[in-house]
Design a binder for these strands. Sequence first.
DNA 1: GGCAATTAGTTTCATTTGAAACTATATTGG
DNA 2: CCAATATAGTTTCAAATGAAACTAATTGCC
Lengths: 160, 160
Amino acid sequence: MPSSAAAKSAAGLDLDRFLPYRLSVLSNHVSDAIAKIYSERFRLSIPEWRVMAVLGGTPGLSARDVAERTAMDKVQVSRAVDTLVRAGRAARSADAEDGRIQRLALTAKGRAIYDEVVPLALHLEEVFLSALSPAERRQLDALLAKLARRAHLLVVAETA
Amino acid sequence: MPSSAAAKSAAGLDLDRFLPYRLSVLSNHVSDAIAKIYSERFRLSIPEWRVMAVLGGTPGLSARDVAERTAMDKVQVSRAVDTLVRAGRAARSADAEDGRIQRLALTAKGRAIYDEVVPLALHLEEVFLSALSPAERRQLDALLAKLARRAHLLVVAETA
DNA sequence: GGCAATTAGTTTCATTTGAAACTATATTGG
DNA sequence: CCAATATAGTTTCAAATGAAACTAATTGCC
C-alpha cells in the first residue's frame, strides 16, 4: 500500500517529536535565559559575550581564531570586537610577525566583567542540569558528542 | 580560600563543555542542513516552512495559534503567511464568529510542497539519529523532554 | 626581486529582524 | 448600551545580520 504510506508519512510530521524543532526551541530558551544575565546587567550582546568568553580563557587570539572557536563569522567578530574595544573591555595589539593580524585580549575592565559573568553562567547551566541525575548528565554528554560529530559531518559534506 | 576559588571558576569556562554553547552549535548545524533542503529546492524561508509544517498537520489554525505552536512571534508569522499567500501556497479565510481572526490553510499547491518536504525532512532527521542506537534514542528523547520542561520553567519564571 | 594568489580584517549595502505603534474587531464592567 | 480594555493581525522604523566588495599585508612562484 504505497499511497497510504505516503499519506501517512506526510501526516506524520509532529513538530513536538521532530528533533530539529525540539533542539531549536530548547537551545533558544537556554540562550535567552543566559543572555538575560549579561545583556541586562552588563550591556553585552550575545556576540560580544561569546568573544569575551574565548578571550577570557585564551588571551592573545586573533580575530580569525575567535571566529573559529565561537562558530561565528568574521564580520560578526569584527563588529563585536570593535564594540568591546570602544567600551574599553578589550584591546587590540599588533602581532610582531604578521602585520595583518591583531592580537586580542580583555582589558582589566573586561576581565572584571568576565570574572563576574562566568560564575553566573555556570550557575544557570547548573540550574538547567539539575533537572538531570548524574547518570543522565553523562548520557547527555555522550549523546551530544555523537550528534555533534554527525552534524558536523553533514554540514561539511553539504558544503563540499 | 575564596579568592582562589573565584579565580578557578573564572578560568573554568570551557566553551566546548558548556551546555548552552553546545546546544546552540548543534541546533544551528541541524537547522542549516534542513533549511538547505527547502530553501534551495522550494524557495522557502525557515519561518515559511515552520508555518507550512503546522498548517500541513492542522489546517484551519489562526495566526496566533501558529505563533504559539512554532514558538515564533506574531510579526514573523504575519510576514511568513503573507509571503505564502502571495505565492499561492496558503490561503486565509474569514472566521465565521470572530471578525479579527483569519483561518489559515495550505492550498493544493502548498500541500504538494508539504508532501514533498516532509519525507525529506524526516529522512534527514533519520540520518542524524542513525548516529544513535535505539536505546540511545530513547535516552535522548527522555533527556530532551526533561530539559525542555526545565527550560520552559526558567523562561516563564524570568518573564514573570 | 617582483607579480599573482592568499589571508586578515573592515566596510558597504541590501535583507532580515523585532519592538512599538497602529487598525479593526470583540469583550467586559458599569 | 456604551465606554474602557483586550485581542488579532499589520505596518513602521530602527537595529542586527550576512554576502560581497574592499584594503592591507603576506606568501608562493618564476
